[in-house]
Design a binder for these strands. Sequence first.
DNA 1: TATTGTTATACTCTATAACTATA
DNA 2: TATAGTTATAGAGTATAACAATA
Lengths: 136, 136
Amino acid sequence: MNDPLTAFPGYSLRRAAHASSSELATRLGTIGLRQSDASVLMLIGANPSATASALGRHLAIQRANMVPLLKRLEDAGLIERAPIDGKSQGLALTQLGQDRLDEARQVIESFEAELILRIPADHRDHLLPALEAIWR
Amino acid sequence: MNDPLTAFPGYSLRRAAHASSSELATRLGTIGLRQSDASVLMLIGANPSATASALGRHLAIQRANMVPLLKRLEDAGLIERAPIDGKSQGLALTQLGQDRLDEARQVIESFEAELILRIPADHRDHLLPALEAIWR
DNA sequence: TATTGTTATACTCTATAACTATA
DNA sequence: TATAGTTATAGAGTATAACAATA
């Protein structure tokens, strides 16, 4: 089939992200996490007592959409909240959350390693800086 | 904020695709098209009398999800269907569809040109081959 | 006044299963 | 038997508006 789309980096970006994302989602699913769950756990792990709003801003997830996400993690016993002041609450991993994060990190790191290996060596080191120029 | 995610190409791939995708969606919205609409129009334009199933396979859109998409394009008077045999139907652009495709192409091409310019020159030519290695 | 957390809601995208009719 | 088109449906991601309480 004649394909005028694949010449566009933007189109390939979408297709590559979708393919890679589906694969990672499947793997994280085996430990009961979504990609957004894993992102939030990693960010809380690296920033104990961060607030929901701050995490959302950093991850480009809106405040309103953080609510069910955090509720899910809390209901699963992975995170807990502690009041900072009357308005904000700091988030932290429980021990179970820390353990789950360790599992997630293993899944993600082996996934990322395989992803990088798929890229021909002469293009490999250019990918991350090129992508960051697009969204950062 | 301490961020362990941005070191991962897979994460940056998602963020870059989302950022780029939102921007293009906004621009295509001004001419009344979604990204999937524009993709399908471009593919029909380059492959007259292609079937819905074949387009879907090529674009990674499932048969079932092609139905409302094509109905929308047909209702808007952009495409028409012609029976190939008792089972399949070939898709073609109407004159209105051809005109809309020309508009979409302008939007996409200027978008893609800007996207490429955002990437530092020494990384620029590596992006497309790296992305294609991921999903093709 | 701006921000935090929240509720409610809606739209889009994606996925699966099942059905009919035809190749 | 496999394929094309279709229906119905569900899950997930994303977006906006609005509200109360607090900084």
